[in-house]
Amino acid sequence: MEKRATFSKTSVGVMFVLPQILLVFTFFYWPTGAALYWAFTLERPWGGGNEWVGLDNFRQVFADRAYWGSIIRSIIFAGATSFLSMGFGLLLAVACDRGLKFYQAFRTVFVWPYAVVAPAAALAFRFIFAPEAGIFSALVKSNHEFWNPAQNGYHAMTMIIVCYSWKYAAYCFIFFLAALQAIPRSVIEASALDGAGVLRRVRDIQLPLITPTFFFLLVISITDSFQDSFGIVDVMTDGGPAKATEFMVYKIYFDGFRGLDYSGAAAQSIVLMFLMMVLTFFQFRFIERRIHYS
């Protein structure tokens, strides 16, 4: 879509766009380019610039079992949180969409978790799951093996998944409800006249009509789980115990800033970028975003 009427002064137009270009260049393209450059080079130990090493950094990264571990954990985390947050988000959205009395109050409440800052939610859930003081403390009293996220990796992972899903179910809820409410009232009414009951309508009409939103959220929640998990992981477990909750972004941060291995971190960044681009591309290319109601 293009405007028919425009201003003619080219220089003025460029002026409007220039600040954004400068910013994007400095803080997006340059760092991205630098990551690429670092990923294919190695800093010489005693200065004197970088040495081209081809795919060496990538070979090294992929040869590292810990890296594969972080990929697998990231995927498990993405799968579990997408399933939980989308599942609960959808359930609550469908329930709200029935428009029973007081549903507006519920709708307001269901949005809140998304407004809770992730690290604060993380701290809250760390407390709730803490074996020494939280709700589990009463159960743990007699049996210390029963629950201890500080030592048991599975427990730690569970804790992080629950916390993240709690927050993102609200996000999914917002989108699912918006999609459900975008379905014209008359389509629902027509199916009611056609004899379909409430549940049948959900299955035959409403769910099929929100599939675009479903796929959109699926991609978003996978990519978000890669990036937004950092704060939660850092506050809850620092990637531990014994790296049981070290995800890809966390490992980049750890290797880059604690291990000062810029080339390794850069190579990991490139892999992650590639993954995200594929997912996003997939979304733009293959997922039709809206149903067109006549």
């Binding site: 389509v187 009414e189 027509a190 009611a192 006249l193 067109h292 109601y293």
Partner: peptide, 17 residues
């Protein structure tokens, strides 16, 4: 509605897209 034996044609047709 489904128990009344009425069928309706809507202004915007309300077809299932």
């Amino acid at each position: 509605p489904r128990e009344r034996g009425c069928a309706m044609v809507f202004q915007n047709y309300a077809l299932y897209p």
